[in-house]
Protein backbone atom coordinates (compact mmCIF):
# COMPACT_ATOMS: atom_id res chain seq x y z
CA UNK A 1 0.00 0.00 0.00
CA UNK A 2 2.73 2.39 1.01
CA UNK A 3 4.63 1.42 -2.10
CA UNK A 4 1.70 2.36 -4.38
CA UNK A 5 1.29 5.67 -2.57
CA UNK A 6 4.96 6.35 -3.11
CA UNK A 7 4.72 5.51 -6.80
CA UNK A 8 1.85 7.99 -7.17
CA UNK A 9 3.66 10.81 -5.40
CA UNK A 10 7.07 10.44 -6.99
CA UNK A 11 6.06 9.30 -10.44
CA UNK A 12 2.50 9.40 -11.67
CA UNK A 13 1.37 12.72 -10.25
CA UNK A 14 4.46 14.68 -11.34
CA UNK A 15 4.32 13.02 -14.74
CA UNK A 16 0.71 14.11 -15.14
CA UNK A 17 1.47 17.70 -14.10
CA UNK A 18 4.44 17.82 -16.48
CA UNK A 19 2.41 16.43 -19.35
CA UNK A 20 -0.46 18.89 -18.85
CA UNK A 21 1.90 21.88 -18.66
CA UNK A 22 3.77 20.75 -21.79
CA UNK A 23 0.81 19.72 -23.87
CA UNK A 24 -1.84 22.29 -23.00
CA UNK A 25 -0.49 25.08 -25.29
CA UNK A 26 -0.47 22.62 -28.21
CA UNK A 27 -4.00 21.55 -27.44
CA UNK A 28 -5.24 25.12 -27.23
CA UNK A 29 -3.55 26.20 -30.47
CA UNK A 30 -5.00 23.25 -32.37
CA UNK A 31 -8.38 23.82 -30.74
CA UNK A 32 -8.35 27.48 -31.84
CA UNK A 33 -7.16 26.62 -35.34
CA UNK A 34 -10.23 24.45 -35.96
CA UNK A 35 -12.80 26.93 -34.65
CA UNK A 36 -14.86 29.39 -36.64
CA UNK A 37 -14.28 33.06 -36.01
CA UNK A 38 -17.34 33.52 -33.82
CA UNK A 39 -16.65 30.43 -31.75
CA UNK A 40 -13.13 31.59 -30.88
CA UNK A 41 -14.35 34.47 -28.73
CA UNK A 42 -17.52 32.76 -27.57
CA UNK A 43 -18.07 32.42 -23.82
CA UNK A 44 -18.22 29.97 -22.15
CA UNK A 45 -15.14 28.61 -23.85
CA UNK A 46 -15.61 25.66 -26.17
CA UNK A 47 -13.04 23.14 -25.05
CA UNK A 48 -13.97 20.92 -27.96
CA UNK A 49 -15.02 22.81 -31.10
CA UNK A 50 -18.73 22.21 -31.71
CA UNK A 51 -18.45 23.03 -35.41
CA UNK A 52 -14.89 22.23 -36.47
CA UNK A 53 -13.73 23.85 -39.69
CA UNK A 54 -10.62 23.95 -41.84
CA UNK A 55 -11.37 27.46 -43.15
CA UNK A 56 -8.58 28.93 -41.03
CA UNK A 57 -6.01 26.71 -42.69
CA UNK A 58 -7.21 27.69 -46.15
CA UNK A 59 -7.09 31.39 -45.24
CA UNK A 60 -3.65 31.11 -43.62
CA UNK A 61 -2.19 29.11 -46.48
CA UNK A 62 -3.48 31.11 -49.43
CA UNK A 63 -4.69 34.55 -48.23
CA UNK A 64 -2.30 35.44 -45.44
CA UNK A 65 0.79 34.11 -47.18
CA UNK A 66 1.84 31.04 -45.26
CA UNK A 67 2.38 29.20 -48.54
CA UNK A 68 5.07 31.78 -49.35
CA UNK A 69 6.54 31.78 -45.84
CA UNK A 70 6.64 27.98 -45.85
CA UNK A 71 8.40 27.93 -49.22
CA UNK A 72 10.93 30.55 -48.07
CA UNK A 73 11.66 28.65 -44.86
CA UNK A 74 12.11 25.48 -46.85
CA UNK A 75 14.52 27.10 -49.33
CA UNK A 76 16.62 28.67 -46.58
CA UNK A 77 16.50 25.53 -44.44
CA UNK A 78 17.44 23.00 -47.08
CA UNK A 79 20.21 25.15 -48.57
CA UNK A 80 21.68 25.84 -45.13
CA UNK A 81 21.62 22.16 -44.25
CA UNK A 82 23.39 21.25 -47.49
CA UNK A 83 26.07 23.91 -47.00
CA UNK A 84 26.57 23.08 -43.33
CA UNK A 85 26.82 19.34 -43.97
CA UNK A 86 29.43 19.65 -46.72
CA UNK A 87 31.59 22.10 -44.78
CA UNK A 88 31.34 20.33 -41.45
CA UNK A 89 32.05 16.90 -42.90
CA UNK A 90 35.22 18.35 -44.44
CA UNK A 91 36.38 20.18 -41.35
CA UNK A 92 35.22 17.41 -39.03
CA UNK A 93 37.23 14.92 -41.04
CA UNK A 94 40.32 17.12 -40.86
CA UNK A 95 39.89 17.42 -37.09
CA UNK A 96 39.44 13.74 -36.40
CA UNK A 97 41.87 12.22 -38.90
CA UNK A 98 44.82 14.60 -39.31
CA UNK A 99 47.38 16.09 -37.03
CA UNK A 100 48.29 19.54 -38.19
CA UNK A 101 49.70 22.76 -36.92
CA UNK A 102 46.99 25.16 -35.84
CA UNK A 103 44.49 22.41 -35.05
CA UNK A 104 44.25 23.53 -31.44
CA UNK A 105 43.82 27.15 -32.50
CA UNK A 106 41.01 26.05 -34.81
CA UNK A 107 39.31 24.18 -31.96
CA UNK A 108 39.63 27.20 -29.67
CA UNK A 109 38.16 29.39 -32.40
CA UNK A 110 35.18 27.05 -32.68
CA UNK A 111 34.71 27.10 -28.92
CA UNK A 112 34.88 30.91 -28.80
CA UNK A 113 32.01 31.24 -31.23
CA UNK A 114 29.73 29.54 -28.71
CA UNK A 115 30.13 32.52 -26.44
CA UNK A 116 29.33 35.15 -29.06
CA UNK A 117 25.97 36.64 -28.20
CA UNK A 118 23.75 36.18 -31.24
CA UNK A 119 22.08 39.53 -30.65
CA UNK A 120 25.48 41.15 -31.15
CA UNK A 121 25.35 40.15 -34.79
CA UNK A 122 22.16 41.83 -35.90
CA UNK A 123 23.51 45.32 -36.52
CA UNK A 124 26.87 44.44 -38.14
CA UNK A 125 25.38 41.69 -40.30
CA UNK A 126 22.69 44.08 -41.48
CA UNK A 127 25.38 46.56 -42.51
CA UNK A 128 27.47 43.87 -44.22
CA UNK A 129 24.59 42.42 -46.22
CA UNK A 130 23.29 45.87 -47.05
CA UNK A 131 26.69 46.67 -48.56
CA UNK A 132 26.64 43.38 -50.43
CA UNK A 133 23.14 44.14 -51.70
CA UNK A 134 21.80 40.92 -50.18
CA UNK A 135 19.12 42.24 -47.82
CA UNK A 136 15.92 40.20 -48.35
CA UNK A 137 17.88 37.63 -50.34
CA UNK A 138 17.71 34.07 -49.00
CA UNK A 139 21.48 34.00 -49.48
CA UNK A 140 22.05 36.36 -46.55
CA UNK A 141 20.17 34.01 -44.22
CA UNK A 142 21.80 30.87 -45.61
CA UNK A 143 25.30 32.28 -45.09
CA UNK A 144 24.53 33.65 -41.65
CA UNK A 145 22.90 30.46 -40.41
CA UNK A 146 25.76 28.38 -41.78
CA UNK A 147 28.28 30.58 -39.96
CA UNK A 148 26.34 30.24 -36.71
CA UNK A 149 25.87 26.47 -37.00
CA UNK A 150 29.21 25.32 -38.43
CA UNK A 151 31.26 25.50 -35.24
CA UNK A 152 28.86 23.20 -33.43
CA UNK A 153 28.26 20.81 -36.34
CA UNK A 154 32.00 20.56 -37.03
CA UNK A 155 32.62 19.34 -33.49
CA UNK A 156 29.62 17.04 -33.71
CA UNK A 157 30.77 15.65 -37.03
CA UNK A 158 34.36 15.11 -35.95
CA UNK A 159 32.95 13.07 -33.07
CA UNK A 160 30.92 10.92 -35.44
CA UNK A 161 33.91 10.45 -37.76
CA UNK A 162 36.18 9.49 -34.86
CA UNK A 163 33.72 6.71 -34.10
CA UNK A 164 34.41 5.15 -37.49
CA UNK A 165 37.51 2.98 -36.93
CA UNK A 166 40.56 4.33 -38.72
CA UNK A 167 41.59 0.79 -39.57
CA UNK A 168 38.61 0.35 -41.90
CA UNK A 169 39.81 3.25 -43.97
CA UNK A 170 43.41 2.09 -43.92
CA UNK A 171 42.32 -1.32 -45.08
CA UNK A 172 40.40 0.23 -47.97
CA UNK A 173 43.46 2.25 -48.94
CA UNK A 174 45.70 -0.75 -48.82
CA UNK A 175 43.19 -2.46 -51.09
CA UNK A 176 43.76 0.33 -53.60
CA UNK A 177 41.22 3.01 -52.82
CA UNK A 178 42.50 6.53 -52.70
CA UNK A 179 41.45 8.68 -49.79
CA UNK A 180 38.44 10.16 -51.54
CA UNK A 181 37.20 6.74 -52.59
CA UNK A 182 37.61 5.29 -49.14
CA UNK A 183 35.80 8.31 -47.74
CA UNK A 184 32.93 7.71 -50.12
CA UNK A 185 32.62 3.94 -49.92
CA UNK A 186 33.73 3.20 -46.38
CA UNK A 187 33.34 6.21 -44.10
CA UNK A 188 30.27 7.82 -45.60
CA UNK A 189 27.85 4.88 -45.26
CA UNK A 190 28.79 4.52 -41.59
CA UNK A 191 28.27 8.24 -41.06
CA UNK A 192 24.69 8.38 -42.32
CA UNK A 193 23.03 8.39 -38.86
CA UNK A 194 25.35 11.18 -37.71
CA UNK A 195 24.75 13.17 -40.87
CA UNK A 196 21.00 12.82 -40.49
CA UNK A 197 21.12 13.96 -36.86
CA UNK A 198 23.31 16.96 -37.72
CA UNK A 199 21.07 17.87 -40.63
CA UNK A 200 17.94 17.68 -38.51
CA UNK A 201 19.37 19.93 -35.80
CA UNK A 202 20.46 22.47 -38.39
CA UNK A 203 17.06 22.36 -40.05
CA UNK A 204 15.25 22.90 -36.73
CA UNK A 205 17.50 25.89 -36.03
CA UNK A 206 16.88 27.54 -39.40
CA UNK A 207 13.18 26.74 -39.17
CA UNK A 208 12.93 28.54 -35.83
CA UNK A 209 15.40 31.43 -36.03
CA UNK A 210 13.73 34.81 -35.72
CA UNK A 211 15.84 37.86 -34.87
CA UNK A 212 18.39 37.62 -37.69
CA UNK A 213 15.67 36.75 -40.20
CA UNK A 214 13.67 39.76 -39.06
CA UNK A 215 16.68 42.04 -39.40
CA UNK A 216 17.85 40.74 -42.78
CA UNK A 217 14.47 40.63 -44.52
CA UNK A 218 12.32 43.61 -45.34
CA UNK A 219 9.98 42.31 -48.02
CA UNK A 220 6.94 40.34 -47.01
CA UNK A 221 7.39 38.01 -49.98
CA UNK A 222 10.74 36.90 -48.51
CA UNK A 223 9.59 36.34 -44.91
CA UNK A 224 10.36 33.01 -43.31
CA UNK A 225 7.74 31.40 -41.07
CA UNK A 226 8.83 32.97 -37.76
CA UNK A 227 8.98 36.46 -39.29
CA UNK A 228 5.62 35.90 -40.98
CA UNK A 229 4.03 34.76 -37.72
CA UNK A 230 5.50 37.70 -35.85
CA UNK A 231 4.28 40.11 -38.51
CA UNK A 232 0.81 38.66 -38.29
CA UNK A 233 0.78 38.91 -34.48
CA UNK A 234 1.67 42.58 -34.70
CA UNK A 235 -1.15 43.51 -37.03
CA UNK A 236 -3.88 45.79 -35.74
CA UNK A 237 -6.72 43.34 -36.29
CA UNK A 238 -5.34 39.93 -35.53
CA UNK A 239 -7.18 37.03 -37.17
CA UNK A 240 -6.71 34.56 -34.34
CA UNK A 241 -8.07 31.56 -36.19
CA UNK A 242 -5.70 32.03 -39.11
CA UNK A 243 -2.83 32.81 -36.72
CA UNK A 244 -3.43 29.54 -34.88
CA UNK A 245 -3.71 27.66 -38.16
CA UNK A 246 -0.46 29.25 -39.37
CA UNK A 247 1.22 28.13 -36.16
CA UNK A 248 0.05 24.59 -36.69
CA UNK A 249 1.47 24.72 -40.23
CA UNK A 250 4.83 25.91 -38.87
CA UNK A 251 4.65 23.47 -35.99
CA UNK A 252 4.12 20.20 -37.79
CA UNK A 253 7.51 19.89 -39.57
CA UNK A 254 9.44 20.95 -36.46
CA UNK A 255 7.63 18.44 -34.26
CA UNK A 256 7.96 15.61 -36.80
CA UNK A 257 11.69 16.26 -37.22
CA UNK A 258 12.07 16.43 -33.49
CA UNK A 259 10.27 13.18 -32.79
CA UNK A 260 12.40 11.55 -35.46
CA UNK A 261 15.72 12.86 -34.12
CA UNK A 262 14.78 12.72 -30.46
CA UNK A 263 16.68 9.51 -29.74
CA UNK A 264 19.98 11.03 -30.86
CA UNK A 265 19.31 14.13 -28.85
CA UNK A 266 20.10 12.98 -25.33
CA UNK A 267 23.38 11.35 -26.31
CA UNK A 268 24.30 14.05 -28.84
CA UNK A 269 23.66 17.06 -26.63
CA UNK A 270 25.08 15.34 -23.60
CA UNK A 271 28.29 14.70 -25.48
CA UNK A 272 28.43 18.24 -26.80
CA UNK A 273 28.00 19.80 -23.39
CA UNK A 274 30.60 17.58 -21.86
CA UNK A 275 33.03 18.67 -24.54
Amino acid sequence: MNKTMDRWLTLRLPLAVMLIFTMFPFYWTINTAFKMDGDIVKRPVEYIPTAPTIDNFVIAWSNVGFATYFKNSLIVGVSTVALVLVLSILSGYALSRYKFKGKRAFMVMLLCTQFIPRAMLIIPLFIIFKNLGLISSPLSLIITYAAVEIPFTTVLMSGFISNVPKELEEAAMIDGCNRLQSLRHVVFPLLVPGIVATGVFTLIYTWNEFLLALMLTNQQSKFTLPVGLSYMMGEFNVNYGALAAGSVIALVPAVLLFVYAQKHLVSGLGGAVKG
Binding site: M18, T22, F26, T29, P226, M233, L243, A254, F258, Q262
Partner: peptide, 21 residues
Protein backbone atom coordinates in the same frame (compact mmCIF):
# COMPACT_ATOMS: atom_id res chain seq x y z
CA UNK B 1 9.53 12.74 -26.32
CA UNK B 2 6.48 14.60 -25.00
CA UNK B 3 8.48 16.35 -22.29
CA UNK B 4 11.18 17.49 -24.71
CA UNK B 5 8.97 18.71 -27.57
CA UNK B 6 8.83 22.40 -26.53
CA UNK B 7 12.62 22.46 -27.08
CA UNK B 8 11.94 22.19 -30.84
CA UNK B 9 9.39 25.00 -30.82
CA UNK B 10 10.62 28.41 -31.93
CA UNK B 11 10.36 31.46 -29.72
CA UNK B 12 7.91 33.01 -32.14
CA UNK B 13 5.70 29.94 -32.22
CA UNK B 14 5.77 29.74 -28.44
CA UNK B 15 4.79 33.42 -28.39
CA UNK B 16 1.79 32.78 -30.61
CA UNK B 17 0.72 29.74 -28.61
CA UNK B 18 0.94 31.52 -25.28
CA UNK B 19 -0.63 34.71 -26.56
CA UNK B 20 -3.62 32.64 -27.65
CA UNK B 21 -3.92 31.51 -24.03
Amino acid sequence: AAAFIPWAISGVLASVMWSLM
